[in-house]
């Protein structure tokens, strides 16, 4: 059978879809289950801690809102990076990739500060109550995903800086973008389920 090669230099597949993109979507669909199980665990043990500190004593919703806003805006810069490489704008690609990595790093810095504050000022850690265990595991794994995303973005930035990301290779940036947007939508859920429902008017 003659093999037809597309503009993206990959052989035509039986579905007409790129296998790497299919694999990324399958991975993201399965990663939903990973975070779903952690969110379910957090919800199941919500309000079951027999000793403090309790969520409403430690959460600073305005502070976390800024972190959520930063991560949300990083999704914009990510999609602008993809739009840039799709039109062959190398400078735009580098600027928006760096901006996305920077916003991701700001988010991680905010999470590090939050965790440190909880441990040092509120005495909350992984083992002193159910809230601490479920909270740190859930948000910690999300932070780990963000860290992996930042490493991927910086790797692509270095490759772009060296001129090794061409317009025809935009799928690589698209795949990195899909992962990054997924990290963002997971935080959209965590922000509501973990933080906003602990607001004074709701827990009261």
């Amino acid at each position: 059978m003659a093999q037809v090669v597309s503009h993206n230099d990959h052989p035509t597949t039986t579905t007409g879809l790129d296998h790497r993109k299919m694999l990324m979507w399958a991975f993201l669909g399965s990663d939903c289950l990973f975070f779903g199980s952690l969110i379910a665990t957090y919800l199941l043990y919500r309000g079951k801690s027999i000793t403090g500190p309790y969520p409403h004593e430690v959460f600073n919703i305005p502070y976390t809102s800024i972190s959520a806003f930063v991560l949300l805006m990083s999704s914009l810069t990510m999609v602008l990076a993809l739009a840039a490489i799709q039109r062959g704008d190398q400078r735009g690609l580098k600027v928006w990739l760096l901006a996305t990595a920077l916003l991701g790093t700001i988010f991680l810095g905010g999470q590090y500060f939050e965790f440190t504050f909880f441990v040092e000022h509120n005495g909350l850690n992984l083992t002193n109550n159910l809230f601490g265990t479920t909270f740190f595991i859930l948000t910690g794994f999300h932070g780990l995903h963000v860290t992996v995303g930042v490493i991927i973005l910086l790797s692509f930035f270095v490759m772009a800086w060296r001129g090794r990301v061409s317009q025809t290779q935009h799928l690589n940036i698209e795949l990195a973008g899909l992962y990054w947007h997924f990290v963002d939508i997971v935080w959209i859920v965590i922000f509501t389920v973990v933080y906003l429902v602990e607001a004074p008017n709701i827990i009261g």
Binding site: C32, L33, G36
Partner: peptide
């Protein structure tokens, strides 16, 4: 919009939202 599911092949939507629906069911 940002992940382009609105514009991409429907199979990607099935893969992702299948996972989302399964997750909601598990929770």
């Amino acid at each position: 919009f940002f992940m382009h599911l609105k514009f991409d092949n429907k199979l990607f939507s099935y893969l992702f939202f299948g996972g989302v629906v399964l997750t909601i069911g598990v929770i």
